[in-house]
Design a protein around this nucleic acid. Sequence first.
RNA 1: GGCCUCAUCGUCUAGUGGUUAGGACACGAGCUUCUCAAGCUCGGAACCGGAGUCCGAUUCUCCGUGAGGUCACCA
Length: 389
Amino acid sequence: MNNLEKVVVRIPPSPTGYFHIGRARTALFNYLFARKNKGKIVFRIEDTDKERSKKEYEEDIIESLEWLGIDYDDFYRQSERGEIYKKYIEKMLDNNSAYVAEDEVIRFKNPNRKIKFDDLVRGEIEFDTSDLEDFIVAKSINEPLYHLAVVVDDHESGVTHVIRGDDGISNTPRQILLQEAVGAVRPRYAHVPMILAPDRSKLSARQGATSIRDFRDKGYLPQAMINYLALLGWNPGTEQEIFTKEELIEQFSLEKIQKSGAIFDEKKLQWVNREHLKRLPAEVQKERQISALREELYIKKRPTLDVSSICWNDISKENTKKYLEKVKELVGDDDAIMKYAEKVGKGNVLWPLRYALSGLEKSPDPFTLMAALGKDESISRIEKAIQLL
RNA sequence: GGCCUCAUCGUCUAGUGGUUAGGACACGAGCUUCUCAAGCUCGGAACCGGAGUCCGAUUCUCCGUGAGGUCACCA
């Protein structure tokens, strides 16, 4: 790449399913690379297959990209570009690089030669295309197939870098052949490894959450999602693990992309998410925590308390009862409760209070619990504990 | 099966022709009167195998093995 060339990348999903994390990560790498190099991003919907393409999926892809914060500069659908493909098919028929076979489909005339290309993440890769048959480029003059549509669109959009999943490696020689047949410039290729399921098999919907919307629905932060996705198969060469989007753009480079596939680990995603949560303003954190808490079982349904767990350490039942009665009167005034707790011993008051509210040895702090439960329910739970004592 | 690609802790990874092979997540242990599903400290845990090159290979080469991808009128 020389300095005069403007980088153009593409994000080309096919609307045949919900936007999954593998495609999202490839989209992210394209995004980071383009933004880092002040380039352009073309977002195109590959919907040449009319049977399998659905509007619902297209909408999901658009929403998911927006949620992740991956924006783009140009947008189009292949289904709206029939005239353009037609022009190229005619050209190929004219220059004899394609022909109409007996079965009426349009086939590419394979020149059967060796194709070598320099992959930006894997180095030199060579194929012998005599292993391939005369593959079909269009069902008819008005119905182009994948390989042709990709080559034409990349050419027309001036794409300079094709950054895609490594399942595209074996498609590359075919596409290079087509580029030569229609007189298109060959873009630079970068094949990134795939995201794998825990058993190292291909990720599929059967293995649980795999689409971006699943993670959005679970409450993950978009900034945590792109942070974690970026780290799967790429690293900055330093020990930094938590990044803002701007930092990712700043530090991204294709050279640091890994060659082998990576297993998606939700545990680590959870950790990255917590780290991003900590960086949010305190009020926002509190609000999020409270609304997440309301979904918890022990908040929805009153827990059963174990009498022996109510008192803190060796504090007597009588004293604990006294503390809880005082706190009961103060519910609604967190500062007053805290002041009281500091006066008579924080653990003496806060442990039984927290336990009365949650019924758990470990839980969020009592003030957050009260906020999630509301004043009335908090008071009844405290009363219940007092009764037991 | 043909072709292509890949191979460091359980997972994500750093790294080098000579290192106590580093970090993070997860896991285990311990500590902590409690705004405790947290925090802190400590710990166990890896260079797929075999040849070759070399004074010396985890690192370079070759061969195995394993894994993945791809071989559609899908993309």
